[in-house]
């Protein structure tokens, strides 16, 4: 029933995104929790799993905004695939890498999404990208860092591993 739990997690995250996250808005930018969840899930699922998860997450997001139907599906499918593929091939587990990876993924997602949204209208695309996508990527990466720290604190693994590695280094 892993897929069921995953589905519930995606739905809950979407619910959080439309209910709670609006109260954490900074200068008009919000962290993208569904994308953050997709990154975490795709890292464990591989390229094919990441693609399907991205497609599912995008579908759920899109059906509530009919005007952009299909855009989130496509952007998130590609992002899920890329994240899964990178995670299969790159084995780096440092906090900085994780945070940077999240930020880069968010930028890639928004890049694709905004290209589709603006229909390749570059004069519209660039301002939106720099004024919206970049701050969102930073904000999402910061939230991702918090989630990672919280997760490590709960599991007691990552911080311990990191400090051990630092001592050895």
């Amino acid at each position: 029933m892993t897929w069921m739990r995953t589905l519930v997690a995606i739905l809950l995250t979407l619910l959080l995104q439309v209910s709670v996250v609006q109260y954490f808005e900074l200068w008009g930018n919000r962290p993208d929790l569904p994308l953050l969840l997709l990154i975490f899930l795709a890292q464990k699922s591989g390229a094919a799993g990441g693609t399907l998860l991205g497609f599912a997450t995008g579908s759920f997001q899109d059906i509530f905004v009919p005007h952009t139907l299909g855009m989130n599906m496509l952007a998130k499918s590609v992002v899920g695939n890329v994240v899964g593929k990178i995670s299969e091939n790159v084995v780096v587990d440092t906090p900085l890498w994780n945070v940077g990876f999240i930020a880069a993924t968010v930028l890639m997602h928004d890049f694709l999404y905004l290209l589709l949204y603006t229909r390749l209208d570059l004069p519209r695309f660039f301002p939106m990208f720099f004024l919206h996508a970049v701050p969102t990527a930073i904000y999402t990466a910061a939230v991702g860092a918090l989630v990672l720290v919280a997760s490590a604190w709960i599991q007691g693994g990552w911080v311990a591993n990191f400090s051990q590695r630092s001592d050895r280094g």
Partner: peptide, 29 residues
């Protein structure tokens, strides 16, 4: 299989995007 899944998902997304506004709203609802 990774590529096939990606192609299928992207293809589906593009197909959905190709729908008219009314059809998109109707089906999304």
């Amino acid at each position: 299989s990774d590529r096939i899944v990606l192609v299928v998902c992207v293809g589906l997304s593009l197909w959905v995007m190709s729908w008219g506004e009314d059809l998109r709203v109707q089906r999304a609802t």
